[in-house]
């Protein structure tokens, strides 16, 4: 009994310690902004690695999700004779929910795991240590650019995802199933509100970008510098990011659209 209590206590203590460390880490890397002359090229390089290299998976997934939405929506809406509303349905689903959420999940799998593995390897090969010994703060040089890159690219990726998805929905709904193109776009225009829908979706993706990148860089920085340590840190990044995104999505949706 005492043993079990002790285990629970130790577990809780470990979780709290890790939360504390990650918060301290977050604050320190947010403060540690490099000088523009050195920082900007580093940031651009990371935006390329985190954002541009994720474009393929985002575009392809967005296209397929939009096409599936078009098909499923058409099937349900024809039962009520309102298949003209398909544009509105595809757009709202993507802009409000699937755009930010699926992008964040893909981002965690593609970019987050890469960030964790890269930083973990830099730690294992003593690159971070040697940087410290040269009098260079690795938080400023390595972590901060990666952090900001994730933060900046996630909303952009989510928007691209939604746009491609809407186009995919049109390919299926209009070009294949024969919904009138005018009503596809007109219904969408009249029902999608910029502040209510688009902006809230962007806010969601900003929050997800922040959380996913934080988890990814922290797990890399805090990983045990061995091959087992790095693989477990990479797994943790994907699992924690996915759970955080889905949990936060519920909270954000409740606040934004729940009328409470």
């Amino acid at each position: 009994m005492i043993d079990r209590l002790a285990t629970i206590g130790r577990g809780t203590f470990d979780i709290l310690a890790s939360l504390g460390r990650s918060s301290e880490f977050l604050v320190r890397s947010l403060i540690a902004v490099p000088r523009p002359a050195t920082g900007l090229p580093l940031l651009v390089k990371q935006i390329y690695a985190v954002g541009v290299l994720s474009l393929a998976i985002i575009v392809v997934s967005g296209l397929f999700i939009g096409m599936v939405l078009g098909l499923q929506g058409y099937n349900i809406l024809t039962d009520y004779g309102s298949e003209q509303a398909i544009g509105q349905m595809v757009a709202l689903t993507l802009v409000r929910e699937l755009g930010p959420v699926v992008t964040a999940l893909l981002f965690a799998g593609r970019a987050g795991s890469a960030l964790t593995a890269e930083i973990g390897l830099m730690k294992a090969t003593e690159q971070l240590s040697s940087m410290e010994m040269m009098g260079v703060d690795p938080l400023r040089r390595v972590i901060a650019p990666r952090f900001w890159a994730g933060f900046i690219t996630m909303p952009l990726l989510a928007m691209i995802f939604s746009v491609v998805g809407i186009w995919g929905g049109m390919l299926v709904g209009v070009d294949w199933l024969g919904v009138f193109e005018g009503s596809y776009w007109a219904n969408m225009q009249s029902s999608v509100d910029f502040g209510e829908d688009v902006l809230n979706g962007v806010i969601k993706s900003i929050v997800f970008g922040f959380v996913c990148t934080w988890i990814a860089v922290y797990q890399g920085y805090d990983s045990v510098p061995t091959s087992e340590g790095i693989s477990s840190a990479t797994t943790k990044t994907v699992v924690y990011s996915s759970l955080a995104v889905l949990g936060l999505d519920f909270i954000l949706t409740a606040v934004m659209f729940g009328d409470i």
Partner: peptide
């Protein structure tokens, strides 16, 4: 303090076991 430590480290060089070159 951190900044003074970093200044002191500019006067030190360290050769790590693995070399620790930036890959």
């Amino acid at each position: 303090r951190r900044s003074a430590l970093y200044d002191l480290r500019k006067r030190m060089g360290m050769l790590f076991q693995s070399g620790a070159l930036f890959s």
